[in-house]
Nucleic acid binder design. Structure first.
Lengths: 197, 197, 197, 197
DNA sequence: TATGAATGAGGCTTCATTCAT
DNA sequence: TATGAATGAAGCCTCATTCAT
């Protein structure tokens, strides 16, 4: 007996994340998702338009949450731009390492889906990207960040790097412990590799 | 008129790269590949075990070439480690921007394939990664690269960043001109974002 | 209007028997079976693992029925062993001549399937063979059957003979009327051909 | 280097018999046959119209040989009908037990092929059957064989029994040693099972 | 005759989606 | 809403046969 309405939709989202993480979106079967969610196959179509819609909704929820968390950092006037980037990075890693299946889905499915379904993809993702831009712009203006850095390129630089490190962590958590990843990541973003001393 | 040996296999590889780039591996149909290659459907199976094998062979050829090109840079004793990294980056961008379809396939399909078929995936990729490690180690020893950088993490940091930038370039070449990407990328890798004045 | 449960599975079994009888198992197409059963192609796979499974299930049902019918004869203590053999023969012919398609499938497909899928083949067939052995052993002990007859050989002797006669009847029913077959068969089994006067 | 012409055709026939015996006619691939025969795939079609033709030719050679061997027995006036049947039985077993692959092909493929290709099937098989009829008729006339036996039915009775016993021998030679099969078979044909003492 | 790469029709099976209940 | 049996379009792959050499 379900506690309240809406549970079923969420069960399906959670089950899908698990299944997508395990075998990949294209090899996942709607029937398996339904089974994993303890729901009838047909019920999936009560809550979602089709299989792709499930994936889109996973990303919708993901970016909605991330955007909202990031927004408060973005609006904080007590810290400077590089600190904001560091906090956002921290938050980003935290969010995904708390849910390894979600991390795998993000790493493996977002690029393709984005290329295919640019129009329908979560607006929150684009708003999230905008937040990033604003923060970097702010840093460039205040002089804390190199002024010659292209904001758009930097955003995709950093996202790509994070994504790949998350993937390595998800695949081999022992070889890539989170602390080490985060420390190195922050250092690389801030100072690069050159020992300019 | 029979075409001389070897051509058909290559025709199929080229056609597959085009098709995979356009619609993605999973949505590609073997029949479409055959048509694009001007070959009968069955001929695909003369040269490849199955559809996945085509993708594996694309990566085999890709990494074999890249590894060999990178090896000569790696062995060059006249340049230091940061310069090697810069040259390798340059070569990497060149290789993929010369073949936008190959770039798309690399960006969109490699991670999933690697997760699924770790064992069968091109050994040259792993040898390529090893080259990268050696160069960074060398730089750390010689003092030109920060000694606290973890080599494994750095390799995946840089690869992820490049991959995502290649993707942006492939999707919106006008918004992400190659020169701008390369300049920014090199600067970010070398010095990071902090304006240390 | 959905048909009540159980019907579709049986429809498919009956349709398969007809199709297998007409063109042989290997030349039968799943699509034809589905059409003959007034069912969608995919529905076949709701009830059966694959095409071979249909054939296995046909034999499963066949030998289950035959075994159960034979068991009651076997247990009857009011008749002696030769009479039991006669009754079983009678029943055997009856069962197959009542369903000529089933007869054809039995005649044409069982040996190959048995050689290929010994493990999955109906256990009822082996239990049926055991019943035959028990009856002959019983006859040998009571003295009504030659004691020098090897039971295993006799079982396969008689089965082979019946099978081939069923085949002739199925192919040319006019040339091989059932009564004649049965009379001759029983006589041959009992007394052989020698006119020992 | 081949010794003489005609070898290749025979190589293919022998290879086919082996392959058909091992996996069954329908599951045999022409390419496998060619490989087994050390011949190119295309060469098979130099000597045979198609795959089915190979099977037909195997049976053509088989029944031609058997017919010729049986004819001399049939014409021998020094032995009576039951003795002829015994000799033919002996010959039959000898022929197949000398070539277990041929036995398997005979057992598993003849019935289906006969049902499908009645017209093209070896005339020698029908002539062989005729020999059998003549001998039995002769026995009935001379009084050595029960006069109420139907010749056609008897022929198929005996062929079916032999075929099934050959199959058992081919599958489990240890459980069904040839001597035992032959002794029992002859006894059953001659006297049946009833202990009429 | 001999070859074996090339062909492409065809079949089995899968699985997202529907719909009668 | 919820179900899950039923659907049938679609795709991968096989393999008998051909044919240019």
């Amino acid at each position: 007996m379900r506690i309240k309405e809406g549970d079923k939709r969420n069960d399906i989202l959670l089950a899908s994340t698990r299944i997508f993480a395990k075998v990949g979106y294209h090899k996942s079967k709607v029937a398996s998702i339904a089974e994993e969610a303890n729901v009838a196959t047909g019920s999936v179509y009560v809550y979602f338009k089709n299989k792709e819609d499930i994936l889109l909704q996973i990303f919708e929820e993901l970016w909605k949450k991330l955007y909202n968390e990031f927004k408060s950092i973005s609006l904080d006037t007590s810290i400077d731009s590089p600190q904001k980037i560091e906090q956002m990075t921290e938050l980003f890693f935290e969010h995904f390492t708390a849910d390894i299946d979600l991390a795998k889905v993000f790493v493996n499915e977002q690029t393709q889906l984005l290329n295919d379904q640019m129009i329908q993809f979560s607006r929150y993702y684009y708003k999230f990207l905008d937040l990033g831009r604003d923060i970097v712009e702010e840093g460039k203006l205040s002089g804390s960040i190199y002024s010659n850095i292209d904001v758009d390129i930097f955003r995709h630089f950093i996202l790509g790097a994070i994504r790949n490190l998350l993937n390595q962590w998800a695949v081999e958590p022992d070889k890539f412990p989170l602390d080490k990843i985060k420390t190195n990541f922050k250092s690389l973003i801030k100072h690069g590799i050159l020992n300019s001393k």
